[in-house]
Nucleic acid binder design. Structure first.
Lengths: 143, 143
DNA sequence: CTACGAATTAAAGCCAACTTGAGGTCAAGC
DNA sequence: GCTTGACCTCAAGTTGGCTTTAATTCGTAG
């Protein structure tokens, strides 16, 4: 079972077939054959789709994603651009971290209005500073 | 100068006045007065806008954001929901981290097609596992 | 007192990323 | 050989988040 049917791809990736057809239409993925009318894909398409999902989660447009890991897995972008995007992601991750902390604080803080809570204001200020200066953040992944 | 004009808010927050009016229309922020026709805001709106920007960056819809830190800074959501959202963010941060690493790898890897590179496949696999299992990630903010 | 510039309104328009619908095709099982 | 159900195509519709446009209203500087 070398090739997989669009229905199978859809089930395994959790992406509607209509979206897969759309992705093919814009050149983000490609089917390699037909079985009757039905599109057949190589199993690798599942990896590509995982990547696409991540890219979307990161807020990149399908066009951006296509440039980063094109139809064949080759990026159209020069190294520097890719590193720039990675740096951008680092900043983004920092923002998200602050937002997460803010959210947890909001959940636990007893202050009647958050605008009056100094911790809240400090967190949001921190976010502002982070955006302005691009403070570095280190991530550590645990088992 | 207690209140600030919409133009000033727009300049300081870097958000077009049309967007600010739209935010007010959907109840995400509110102006407290008019000077002639012109909307006047309390300075706190700038903090709110910073929060809104973060929420947007995190991929939340304006409706979600509104529920998280409503017009007055009071969340409409029960604590548990807020913590759930924070957990969601943690997963999201993990994905972004993998994406960042993948991007850096793609930038530096000499393999002709990434689909043939084992490091690449391992990274993307990691992402898939992360999505399925919700592996925990710890973040540490420096300086 | 007049001109200017910045803001106002309501309604229409726009873009990405899909989804939906109508009508058609195909392969596999009975 | 017929039915079934999964897929096909193409066009049009949808949603969120704004932007644009046109006609108008103010406050301030000259």
């Amino acid at each position: 079972m070398r090739l997989i049917d669009i229905g199978e791809v859809s089930r395994q990736a959790g992406i509607p077939a209509s979206a897969l057809r759309y992705y093919e239409e814009i050149g983000l993925i490609s089917s390699v054959a037909r079985h009757g009318l039905r599109r057949q894909f190589e199993p690798d398409v599942l990896l590509q789709l995982a990547l696409i999902s991540m890219g979307k989660a990161a807020g990149f447009s399908l066009e951006d994603i296509s440039a980063m890991f094109g139809r064949d897995g080759k990026p159209d972008l020069p190294r520097k651009d890719l590193h720039d995007r990675a740096d951008e992601l680092d900043r983004h991750i920092g923002e998200l971290t602050v937002l997460r902390d803010t959210l947890r604080h909001v959940a636990d803080c007893p202050a009647p209005s958050h605008m009056e809570c100094p911790t809240f204001r400090r967190l949001v200020d921190l976010a502002g500073k982070r955006r302005r200066k691009g403070i570095k953040v280190r991530l550590q992944t645990l088992g």
